[in-house]
């Protein structure tokens, strides 16, 4: 192993409970210089992983939130015609109007390529964009370079970014794209793991509160016909809400009082189902 790669070994971060398996995968992907594609239910920490890598390896994190209408070129660079037009009319800026390069603004991928140091580039929810987006990105991933058509210049990655790509598992990405990535599916944490996660976020938490909330949380997750099941994020917010309520006692949860259901269930139908279940069956 080269000295360099041992320096950039990912070992976890302060607010992120790392599964050792996932740590291996991250390290292998970094060593092989391959993007890591993460799938899994919402709230399993796909996005958090990128934050954790950036924090742990002290690299800047660049986040590209993919939108459905996005074109790849927007993520690479943008040619700011309006400013140039404005400058050419008024001539009061320091920019040189005849030099188009001064009006090129880097997009997120462009920023990662031109950064002074190695960065973590998170491409979040790539499945939102259409297949063209992914196909176009293949070239960029392969070459680690892209062309700026307006000035006929090729931008090469100065430091190869650590790519973390997330997808929400609704549809599979195209084969050639998958071929260029390493893949991992993050399973929903089990109660033991969840306990660790809760402890990381609330080091001071009362033991009984943690146990009761987690137990209640997993039972609520099992409710049928719920469209969006509460995930880690909801649990953490819920604990925060319960902590903030002076009247709340952890014992109540075991008795069947489940306050602040709205923190866990965001869709009105889901909320109804959960509220009914709690009231009628006395789940707990």
């Amino acid at each position: 192993m080269t000295e360099n790669s041992s320096v950039t070994r990912f070992t976890g971060a302060a607010r992120y409970v790392l599964d050792p398996e996932l740590a291996d995968i991250v390290n292998i992907s970094m060593a092989l210089e391959m993007p890591l594609l993460l799938k899994g239910e919402p709230g399993t920490g796909k996005t958090m992983l990128a934050h954790a890598i950036a924090e742990n390896l002290q690299m800047p994190l660049i986040v590209l939130n993919v939108k459905s209408s996005m074109k790849l070129v927007e993520t690479l660079y943008q040619y700011d015609t309006l400013t140039r037009l404005n400058d050419s009319r008024f001539g009061d800026s320091k920019r040189d109007v005849s030099n188009i390069e001064e009006y090129i603004r880097m997009g997120k991928i462009g920023q990662a390529f031109t950064a002074d140091q190695r960065t973590v580039l998170l491409i979040d929810e790539i499945d939102k964009a259409d297949t063209d987006f992914q196909d176009d990105m293949l070239d960029v991933l392969d070459q680690m370079a892209f062309d700026i058509i307006e000035i006929d210049k090729t931008i090469r990655a100065r430091h190869r970014p650590v790519f973390v790509i997330t997808s929400n598992a609704k549809k599979d990405l195209s084969d050639p794209f998958l071929g260029r990535c390493n893949f991992h599916h993050i399973a929903f944490p089990d109660p033991k793991m969840m306990r660790k996660i809760v402890n990381v976020h609330f080091p001071q938490i009362d033991r009984q509160l943690a146990e009761n909330t987690i137990a209640a949380f997993y039972r609520l997750r099992e409710l049928e016909a719920v469209e969006k099941r509460p995930a880690t994020r909801e649990l953490l917010n819920w604990i925060r809400a319960l902590n903030a309520d002076p009247d709340f006692r952890p014992k109540d949860l075991a008795k069947g009082d489940v306050p602040y259901l709205g923190v866990l269930f965001k869709k009105s139908q889901d909320y109804q189902i959960a509220a009914n279940a709690v009231r009628r069956r006395r789940l707990f």
Partner: peptide, 29 residues
Amino acid sequence: TLHRALDMGLVQSLGEFYTASRSILVKSE
């Protein structure tokens, strides 16, 4: 690619081989 990972000495144990081969070879859960 998996062999490249092996050559680079990234895989030291069977457990690591398991994670490495799965994440590199298998692209869908």
